[in-house]
């Protein structure tokens, strides 16, 4: 009898120890990115005093604009456990069609705000189609979005057929160089979208559904969540933010070219995984995304300051993603990674 009791106590102790270890791991995962951000900031500042000069801070704010917008959108997708590889194509499509619809050198269109909003809405629609293909035809998201990425990139080139349009509107210049309280307008837009993303994720039933699906899709389904609707909406949101990023890029570059989207997917995913958003879904959130974007931007900026070749930067990003994902992947769960 007594031995039985002892045994039970031992098992209870083991269980407690396991829980404690898990929560410790969890806490480490939550605080790790913030510690990394602070230590990198200090390191960079010590290495080069120009890093926190006012001019470079403005630089940093500019550089974080597009990654922040894209990361906000893709956070929703990653939280459901899916992935969106079509960012680049959608962004290029939005940018090139916006450039063709507002005052430009290639045709006589001048639709103003409508010319900006319609392509962005179109992108959201494309995202919804992606979501529908993924959910209704039951094709894995990475392959649907991989194909959609190439379709939209092709469409982007097709809109201007070889020679991209250069935009001539006056407000584009004001928008791209102007600033308010020392923060560029474009960064304000990005922050606004990020705030909207936070509200949507943390304060609505939709946000809860996103977490529920990412954590355990079958359980969410059993408890009455409309999985297909939520997933479709998630892809629409992601494509919509890609469209907005395309607009921003178009305003900054003054030219609507499909290539503006290239190499934009990696920064977004890198930022998310460094920040601690799990690729298997359900873990992380907007704050992790924000920290991740900051880390990514600082790293990029620093690599530029010390003069690393642009070719190497992408390779470095690739290695960082693998390491970050390998560190955050939970091996205790018996999921099969494919």
């Amino acid at each position: 009898m007594e031995r039985d009791h002892e045994k039970r106590a031992a098992i209870a102790d083991q269980f407690k120890e396991k829980i404690r270890r898990e929560t410790r791991g969890e806490r480490l995962r939550v605080y790790m990115p913030i510690i990394l951000l602070l230590s990198l900031s200090v390191l960079f500042a010590v290495y080069d005093s120009r890093f926190f000069s006012p001019a470079n801070i403005t630089n940093l704010l500019y550089q974080m604009t597009i990654p922040l917008i894209l990361a906000t959108g893709i956070t929703f997708v990653l939280l459901t456990g899916c992935i969106d590889l079509s960012l680049e194509g959608v962004m290029g499509l939005a940018g090139s069609s916006i450039a063709l619809l507002i005052l430009n050198t290639k045709n006589s269109n001048d639709f103003g705000a409508i010319g900006v909003l319609v392509p962005i809405a179109g992108c959201a629609l494309i995202g919804a189609v992606t979501g529908l293909i993924h959910t209704k035809l039951r094709i894995a998201s990475f392959i649907v979005t991989f194909a959609m990425g190439s379709i939209t990139a092709g469409l982007a080139v097709l809109t201007y057929r070889g020679v991209p349009a250069v935009i001539k509107v006056g407000w584009a210049n004001d928008l791209s160089v102007g600033s308010f309280w020392g923060v560029p307008y474009l960064t304000w837009i990005a922050l606004g979208i990020f705030a909207a993303g936070c509200v949507l994720l943390y304060c609505t039933a939709f946000g809860c559904a996103v977490y529920a699906i990412g954590d355990n899709e079958l359980a969410a389904k059993a408890s009455g969540t409309h999985i297909d609707a939520v997933k479709t909406a998630v892809f629409a949101i992601c494509a919509c933010t890609s469209g907005i990023a395309g607009f921003i890029s178009c305003v900054r570059l003054k030219i609507g070219q499909a290539a503006m989207g290239s190499d934009q997917l990696f920064p977004a995913i890198t930022a998310l995984v460094i920040g601690g958003v799990s690729l298997s879904g359900g873990k992380g959130g907007m704050l992790q995304t924000f920290v991740g974007v900051l880390i990514y931007t600082e790293l990029q900026n620093f690599l530029t300051i010390i003069g690393v070749d642009a070719y190497y930067k992408k390779a470095v990003q690739g290695v960082i993603i693998i390491i970050a994902v390998a560190m955050t992947v939970s091996r205790s769960r018996k999921t099969i990674s494919k």
């Binding site: 990003q317 993603i321 992947v329």
Partner: peptide, 21 residues
Amino acid sequence: LKVPSFIVTLCAQSVWKCVAL
């Protein structure tokens, strides 16, 4: 390391592209 294959190969893509360039 149990990292999903599309992520691993996407990153490998960037590394090999870098070598080529």
